[in-house]
C-alpha cells in the first residue's frame, strides 16, 4: 500500500502541495484530477520518491520511503508526461537501455523487450528511430519503457496528451488491460472520461490541496442534488412557462430559442407533469433530456470555471 501522509512541498515561498493525504491500495486504480498548477506532478514526484517532501511522509507498505526508496522503486513504473526517450535510438534500443538500467540482461532482457513491444503494439516498428515516430507511437513507447521490470504499481502522468484519437483509444485499452490484470494504477489526466473509464477512486486537487475524493458515484453525489432537464419544443408560450413555475416553484427556468432548460431538485419526478402541461398549452415537445452530472460537472463544480492560466 502506498500512502501519502500530510504531504507538503514548498518551492522557495510557493507552497505547491499542502498537507495532502492519499492512499493507493494494491490492485486499485486511482485517478488524480486537478487544473493546471494544482500540484499533481509534484505530488506524483513525491509519491515516486523523486522529490523530497518539505513535510509529511510517503509510506510504502507502512515504511517511510524518505531514507530508503529502493523497495518502492523496484516495484514502481512511472510514465512521465514528457517523452522520456532517446530520439536518436530505435524503439528496441531505447527499451534495451532502460531494461539494462533496471538490471535486466541477456535472454531475459530480450524476452521482456519483445513482450513489451507486443503490449504497446510496436513490434513492427521496433528497429525504427524514435524521432521518426508519430506522437502516439512515442507515447506508447514511453509507457513501454516503464513496464520492462514488470512493476506492480504504475504511475501515469497525463499519458495521452497531444495524440490522435486512435492512439489514445489504444493506450486506454492497454491501460485498462493492466488494471484488469491487477496492476495498481495512479492516473492523472485532463480528460475526465479517461479517469472515469479507468479509475475506481478519484482524488481532486486544487491549489495544492485535495478538495474531494471518493468513488465516481460518491463524487457525482456532491453535485447531484439538482437535476437538469433540457426540452426542445415548438411554440413555447409564456403561459406554458408560467404554469411550469406554478407547478415547480423551486425550479429555475431558462428559455433560449426553442430550448427550455429546467433545473430542479433531484427528488422531484417532473417529466409526466411537464408533458401534461405541454399538452394543455398546445406545446409540442420534440425531445427531452434529463442530465445526470458527469465527472466534468463535478470537477468544474469543485474547482470553478475561472481560467487557470
Amino acid at each position: 500500500m502506498l500512502q501519502a501522509i500530510n504531504l507538503s512541498k514548498r518551492f522557495k515561498t510557493k507552497e505547491v502541495v499542502r498537507e495532502i493525504n492519499m492512499e493507493l491500495l494494491a490492485g486499485e486504480s486511482v485517478g488524480l484530477l486537478g487544473p493546471n498548477g494544482a500540484g499533481k506532478s509534484t505530488t506524483i514526484s513525491m509519491l515516486s520518491s523523486l522529490v523530497q517532501p518539505t513535510s509529511g511522509d510517503v509510506l510504502w507498505n507502512e515504511k517511510s520511503i524518505a531514507k530508503n526508496p529502493e523497495p518502492l522503486r523496484k516495484t514502481l513504473g512511472v510514465v512521465p508526461q514528457e517523452i522520456a526517450l532517446y530520439p536518436e535510438l530505435s524503439a528496441r534500443e531505447n527499451l534495451a537501455f532502460f531494461g539494462r538500467v533496471y538490471g535486466l540482461k541477456g535472454e531475459l532482457l530480450e524476452t521482456r523487450i519483445t513482450e513489451v513491444l507486443m503490449k504497446i503494439g510496436l513490434t513492427d516498428r521496433q528497429k525504427d528511430i524514435v524521432k521518426t515516430f508519430s506522437g502516439g507511437m512515442k507515447r506508447r513507447l514511453n509507457i513501454g519503457a516503464a513496464l520492462l521490470h514488470r512493476p506492480s504499481i504504475l504511475i501515469m502522468d497525463e499519458p495521452t496528451v497531444g495524440i490522435d484519437p486512435q492512439s489514445r483509444a489504444y493506450i486506454l485499452e492497454t491501460v485498462k488491460q493492466f488494471v484488469e490484470e491487477g496492476m495498481t494504477l495512479l492516473y492523472t489526466s485532463h480528460y475526465m472520461e479517461e479517469v472515469e473509464m479507468l479509475c475506481d477512486k478519484i482524488y481532486i486537487m486544487d491549489q495544492g490541496k485535495i478538495i474531494a475524493h471518493g468513488t465516481k458515484e460518491e463524487l457525482k453525489g456532491l453535485v447531484s442534488e439538482n437535476q437538469t432537464i433540457e426540452l426542445k419544443a415548438n411554440l413555447l408560450t409564456e403561459n406554458f412557462e408560467k404554469t411550469l413555475i406554478e407547478r415547480f416553484p423551486t425550479a429555475t427556468l431558462h428559455i433560449e430559442e426553442e430550448v427550455l432548460t429546467i433545473s430542479m431538485s433531484k427528488s422531484e419526478e417532473p417529466l409526466a407533469t411537464i408533458f401534461a402541461v405541454a399538452a394543455a398549452n398546445n406545446v409540442v415537445i420534440t425531445s427531452a433530456i434529463v442530465k445526470v452530472p458527469s465527472l466534468e460537472d463535478v470537477f468544474l463544480h469543485l474547482t470553478g470555471k475561472a481560467l487557470r492560466d
Binding site: S49, L50, R73, V78, P80, E82, A84, L85, V101, A146
Partner: peptide
C-alpha cells in the same frame, strides 16, 4: 533532465 530520462534513470536506482 528536460526530457525526463534523468528521472527515469533515478527511479531505476542509478
Amino acid at each position: 533532465k528536460r526530457s525526463g530520462v534523468w528521472n527515469r534513470l533515478k527511479l531505476a536506482s542509478v
